[in-house]
């Protein structure tokens, strides 16, 4: 679809975001690098973390935009609907079935792929039922998701206690987000899967534009609504599993990113929205981590600050009457 007057504006937006991300990434890699000594070691360490932050950000941002299009609502996010709690629960269930030693014996990559596979299946069944026909009663759907989230989290700690009341804390670590602990072994798998899912999302972009018109209009335009919904939910599941596996669950980050994306990119075209969301989210994480880790020396705060800001943003949307 040719939209000359808007597409130039969006071109500037995407270019600007890319440059901004590149600038922060360069700063991240090079800032305060010692003139000699362990330079290559430090660079490698920084590179791992940078890649992790970008993957986590981009996956979360894109997953949220995708999910909001499926749900037909600008407030629902995969995290609010309990996607990441489901993933954490899945991880614990795996421990339950195989035992701590059994899970430890699994190769990291295979275990991750297995989890993502099961997660995708479950998410499609569960949220496909909940949202398949375009969620008529949206507030109730939100509430259901929130409660499902609580249910998954409680089940998770329940299982955790049953598995091993003493080593409970180890299992429980999964349920707290930390951007400082990015698993380098998992990163290549996360990166690969995220790239695949993003390409898939871009291929769906035109169909997603139609999906954004609501079920009725979409069906009338000949879109295979159910199939696109399920495909999109599968992509969302993969894109949520990656950041959750890498850093843990982050509830409100996606909402913040999606809100900013729709505010900055004045378009409904997913070909623009999806990359914009990915770039915005990655830039926010890299810049935020740079600020907290290097400037303020307190790396752990970023996730707390994001939750706080995201929660306030949600309240703002609620009070402005934008949530319906």
């Amino acid at each position: 679809m040719q939209l000359p007057e808007i597409s130039r504006q969006n071109l500037i937006l995407l270019t600007g975001l890319t440059l901004l991300l590149a600038a922060f990434s360069a700063l991240w890699m090079l800032q305060g690098l010692p003139p000699e000594g362990n330079r290559s070691f430090i660079l490698k360490l920084r590179w791992t973390k940078l890649a992790g932050l970008i993957v986590v950000g981009a996956a979360t941002g894109i997953a949220t935009v995708l999910f909001q299009t499926v749900a037909g609502n600008r407030v629902l996010t995969p995290s609010i609907m309990g996607f990441d709690s489901l993933y954490v629960l899945l991880q614990t269930s795996l421990v339950m079935m195989l035992g701590i030693a059994g899970v430890a014996a699994l190769p990291v990559g295979e275990k991750f792929l297995l989890e993502v596979g099961v997660m995708t299946l479950l998410a499609c069944i569960l949220f496909g039922t909940l949202l398949g026909r375009g969620a008529r009663d949206i507030p109730r759907t939100i509430l259901t998701g929130v409660i499902l989230g609580i249910l998954f989290r409680s089940l998770n700690s329940f299982l955790g206690r049953v598995i091993d009341p003493i080593e409970f804390a180890v299992v429980q670590q999964n349920s707290m987000a930390s951007f400082s602990r990015i698993d380098a072994n998992l990163l290549p798998y996360g990166l690969g899967l995220a790239l695949l899912a993003m390409v898939g999302a871009m291929l769906l972009a035109s169909r997603l534009d139609v999906l954004g018109l609501g079920r009725e209009v979409a069906v009338s335009l000949g879109l295979r609504h159910e199939r696109v919904v399920i495909l999109t939910l599968a992509l969302v599941a993969v894109l949520v599993a990656i950041p959750t596996a890498l850093v843990g669950p982050i509830t409100f980050f996606g909402l913040l990113v999606a809100g900013m994306t729709h505010g900055l990119a004045q378009t409904a075209r997913h070909a623009i929205l999806l990359p914009a969301a990915g770039l915005i989210a990655a830039t926010m994480l890299v810049a935020g981590q740079l600020l907290f880790e290097r400037v303020m020396g307190q790396a752990a705060f970023l996730s707390v600050i994001i939750e706080f800001a995201g929660g306030l943003f949600f309240m703002y949307l609620l009070l402005k009457g934008r949530i319906r």
Binding site: P139, I142, T251, R324
Partner: peptide, 26 residues
């Protein structure tokens, strides 16, 4: 909130809980 949005009330509460709990954690 809009008076008829019954289900948004608990959602607002849960989010508010999240925000305050972030402050407490911080």
């Amino acid at each position: 909130l809009p008076p008829r949005e019954v289900m948004l009330v608990p959602v607002a509460g849960i989010v508010l809980s999240g925000v305050i709990s972030a402050v407490v954690t911080f």
